[in-house]
Design a protein around this nucleic acid. Structure first.
Length: 574
RNA sequence: UGGGAGGUCGUUCAACGGUAGGACAGCAGACUCUGGAUCUGCUUAUCGGGGUUCGAAUCCCUGCCUCCCAGCCA
């Protein structure tokens, strides 16, 4: 599916991505440029691990890395940090490539993998052994943990720490040759077991893993740890600014130690705060759980905060970029309100997407004084925000559908939609007045409204200047097309989904009503040939997009986000 | 109780020794053929305590609070 494809009638989105927001990373780069620290170069990278799908939090990182490079005429690489063959898959590589591209990331021909550098990394490990800065350790994982000490107690030096260079070289070579089982030995850096920074207590550099790697196959049975790979990969790629999240702050001394011991190019690491959103989980592990346990339909379920999920939900890349740009970046650990994200989608879609009339929960209306068998076409504006999007014709006839919610038999005072005896406007149509209600004799349920229309009000205004209290949307029953509409709500009921009672996990906070499927929606006929990915505003309801499961015989729409609903607010207070 | 990083409106980001400002949210109003959009106005903040200074959110000291780190994960 190509989510960006729009039918000819739908205008392309026009991003107004103006002034880049100032932030501390940008300031650092500006400063480095001014002092000529990097010979005028700005070279960043986006380094995902292909062990899951990208989410909105990654969009922030993508925006920072690709955005800064673009702004300063630099480059940004896409590099997969694929140092753990047990968790990584090509499915994830492919989805990540698609998502970064969709968000506008341009890596040119610089698509790299940490695994591209395995030979070099191995050589560097040997170099550290030779200089006495690394050793093969025979301790088990459990023993290493014991010996590492705690946050408040220093670690102890292990028995293999002072092995000869020759023995280390021999052992490491045999590790590589596959002579030892998984977990039996590791290569460790020889730094300081008493360091207050736990990361410096002789961290593991290589572990034995007889596992097939998605790219290198069975070439290796030892794999570098992320910490031994990441900084050097950045160095190899001559990255000027290695931008990463806060939790790597106290790994920086380790990376610097490697760079210095190896005597190689030194990128500058800068840490920023990762994105947190209310009512949203942004942890790959937990998102995986939602997928694997079937709480959602998959990684691209429109309720998921994944890039593929929100794309399918109908978000535009422009909206996501605007969100990232305006939320800026800092080192403060906080949680952004979901409403901020929603604001930027509405803001973008309002200007870029055509309007259309759709009735989600139809209520039949018969216009008594409209001649039977008649039909006429009325002009409707495609987007009042953008005249260039033109107009279309919508058919009107004697039997219509309106929204059930747009009629009340016993309305509250502030309700000014249709009610018996009241006149309202049908958008781009006529004034109609409700003159009667038809109910199901058994259930008492309202099944039909009898109305009259004012032929003089064609197009939506009465020549006598008469005013109506409201305008409602409608479709002609005879011309309407059926559709399935999926209404999405927050996936979690709590602002912080991780806040649970004793003994429960985040799944206890799942919103049982996060998805409501409406099968009887009625759409205006102009939607007949729409295709997956197209976005619309259903007038007065919200933004919707055609789902990838939609077909010409069975249209399926996803609700991206509701319109701001002042009435809902009023009603809540009643 | 080791180390690292942070604390500015409800939320988020500015202010870089000189009038604490924007955005989101909220409230009130105007306008409107979407109770949409748009426009106006309003409310609300420098973690506490000491200093330095003509002047401190900003510099110093001190206390408090929050987050991250003890994977052969990244």
């Amino acid at each position: 599916m190509d989510a960006t494809k729009q039918e000819p009638g739908a205008a392309p989105t026009t991003p107004t991505e103006s002034i880049p927001a100032s932030n501390f990373i940008r300031d650092i780069i500006l400063d480095d440029l001014r002092t000529d620290k990097c010979q005028g170069r700005v070279h960043t990278r986006f380094p995902p691990e292909p062990n899951g799908y990208l989410h909105i939090g990654h969009a922030k990182s993508i925006h920072i890395n690709f955005g800064l490079a673009a702004e300063f005429g630099g480059k940004c690489n896409l590099r997969f940090d694929d140092t753990n063959p047990c968790k990584e898959e090509t499915e994830y590589v492919e989805s990540i490539i698609e998502d970064v591209r969709w968000l506008g990331g341009d890596w040119g021909d610089r698509l790299f993998y940490a695994s591209d550098y395995f030979d070099q990394l191995y050589e560097w490990a040997v170099q550290l052994i030779r200089s006495g800065d690394a050793y093969v350790c025979d301790l088990s994982a459990e023993q290493v943990r014991q010996q590492r000490g705690t946050l408040t107690r220093p670690g102890e030096e292990g028995p293999d720490r002072n092995r000869s260079v020759e023995e280390n070289l021999d052992l490491f070579e045999r590790m590589r040759a596959g002579e030892f089982p998984d977990g039996s030995r590791t290569l460790r850096a020889r730094i300081d077991m008493a360091s207050p920074n736990v990361n410096m207590r002789d961290p593991v550099l290589y572990r034995i893993l007889h596992a097939e790697h998605h790219r290198t196959g069975n070439k290796w049975c030892i794999y570098p740890m992320y910490d031994f790979a990441h900084g050097q990969c950045d160095s190899i790629e001559r990255i000027t600014h290695s931008i990463c999240t806060l939790e790597f702050e106290d790994h920086r001394p380790l990376y610097d130690w490697f760079i210095e011991k190896l005597g190689i190019y030194h990128p500058q690491q800068i840490e920023f705060d990762r994105l947190n959103l209310t009512y949203t989980l942004l942890s790959k592990r937990k998102l995986l759980t939602l997928v694997q346990k079937g709480y959602v339909g998959g990684w691209d379920d429109p309720r998921m905060p994944t890039i593929s999920g929100i794309r399918r939900r109908g978000y535009s890349p422009e909206a996501i970029r605007a969100f990232c740009r305006n939320m800026s970046v800092s080192k403060t650990n906080g949680t952004t309100e979901l409403s901020a994200l929603e604001y930027y989608v509405r803001n973008d879609l309002n200007k870029s997407v055509p309007r259309v009339m759709a009735v989600l929960r139809p209520l039949r209306v018969v216009v008594d004084n409209y001649p039977e068998g008649w039909m006429e076409e009325l002009d409707a504006v495609n987007n009042p925000e953008d005249e260039s999007m033109g107009t279309r014709r919508v058919p009107f006839s004697r039997v219509l559908y309106i929204e059930q919610d747009d009629f009340r038999e016993n309305p509250p005072k502030q309700y000014y939609r249709l009610t018996v005896g009241r006149e309202v406007r049908l958008r781009y149509g006529f004034f109609i007045k409700c003159v009667g209600v038809v109910k199901d004799e058994r259930t008492g349920e309202i099944v039909e409204l009898r109305c009259t229309y004012d032929p003089e009000s064609r197009g939506g205004n009465s020549p006598d200047g008469r005013k109506v209290k409201s305008t409602i949307h409608w479709v002609s029953a005879q011309h309407a097309i059926d559709a399935e509409v999926r209404l999405y709500d927050k996936l979690f009921l709590k602002e912080n989904p991780n806040e649970t009672e004793e003994g429960q996990d985040f799944t206890a906070n799942l919103n049982p009503k996060s998805l409501e499927v409406l099968t009887g929606a009625k759409l205006e006929p102009s939607l007949h040939d729409t295709v997956p990915g197209n976005r619309y505003q259903f007038e007065r309801l919200g933004y919707f997009c055609v789902d990838r499961e939609s077909s010409p015989g069975h249209l399926v729409f996803n609700r991206t986000v509701e319109l701001r609903d002042t009435w809902a607010k009023i009603e809540k207070k009643l």
